[in-house]
């Protein structure tokens, strides 16, 4: 982490309008360019608030304390920061073709002719490994499966070449097979495009698949942050140990005895 950070948070605190207590407080965090950071925590931990604060997507009237410092100019959401939500339907207009979605984002942020934007849109769908990307440009959101719509949402998020992609529970609504493909896709895209990635999840197992570092949040506070291998092998916070203990894989003891 000798790079100049892409982003530094110093004592970041967020209180939603009308909320009696902060959703997030005392957050100190540095994100390096090209770094893949997983932010893990349970419902109400503040992990989505952190993602939205960084992306500039907090609701109006939210009170933000502390500092959020970018290394360059203040980023433009949608151009310099891409955001992928849990429900891809939220970023897709049912009446607009996939190609029209992509061309609109591309031409809003980049000086491209309609023709060049159309070509770039097809390339983007190929990069997110959508089958038959050129034909998919003509399709509409309802014609795609949940996993394919999430690939399209990722293509939209990376269209303008952001320095940072934030995925907020982007795989939680998908089955495990599609989940594994999307995690691999996000990891590969971040590496191929030299883009930083913030992967927000409640699943420490998924975080382990792609992150350079893991940050653990609980009740709006950072419990610990460290390199993935260290957090998994030698967690410092009791809460991280609980999350690790709750992880299920084939090495977990079964709860019942198998029968013939």
């Amino acid at each position: 982490m000798t790079d100049r950070p892409l982003l530094s948070l110093q004592q970041l605190a967020v209180t939603y309008p009308g909320a009696p207590l902060p959703a997030l407080q005392g957050i100190d965090l540095r994100l390096a360019p090209r770094e893949k950071l997983a932010v893990i925590g349970e419902s109400g931990s503040g992990k989505s608030t952190l993602a939205r604060a960084i992306a500039g997507l907090l609701p109006g009237g939210s009170h933000v304390g502390g500092d959020l410092i970018w290394s360059g100019d203040t980023p433009v959401p949608g151009r310099d920061i891409g955001f992928v939500f849990q429900d891809p339907g939220g970023s897709l207009d049912p009446l607009l073709s996939i190609g029209a979605h992509l061309v609109e984002v591309l031409r809003t942020h980049l000086p491209l002719s309609p023709r060049a934007a159309r070509d770039r849109a097809g390339d983007l769908l190929a990069q997110v490994r959508l089958p038959d990307p050129r034909a998919a440009l003509e399709g509409y959101p309802h014609q795609f499966s949940g996993g394919q719509r999430q690939r399209i949402a990722i293509a939209l998020a990376i269209a303008a070449g952001p320095a940072l992609l934030i995925a907020d529970e982007a795989t939680s609504a998908l089955d495990v097979l599609v989940q594994a493909e999307i995690v691999a896709l996000l990891r590969d895209l971040a590496e191929a495009r030299t883009m930083a990635l913030i992967f927000v999840t409640h699943d420490i197992g998924l975080a382990a698949q792609l992150a350079d570092r893991i940050a653990v949040l609980r009740n709006g506070r950072l419990q610990e942050i460290g390199p993935t291998a260290r957090v998994l092998a030698a967690p410092q916070a009791e809460y991280t140990r609980q999350l690790l203990a709750a992880h299920l894989d084939l090495s977990s003891p079964p709860l019942v005895e198998a029968r013939g």
Partner: peptide, 24 residues
């Protein structure tokens, strides 16, 4: 038995998709 000796291709894929706590 299904976990130790999966017969179907899908079973093998479901097993492979289980995230483990190994770093990337």
């Amino acid at each position: 038995k299904v976990l130790a000796h999966p017969q179907a291709d899908l079973t093998r894929r479901l097993i492979a998709a289980i995230p483990t706590l190994s770093p990337p």
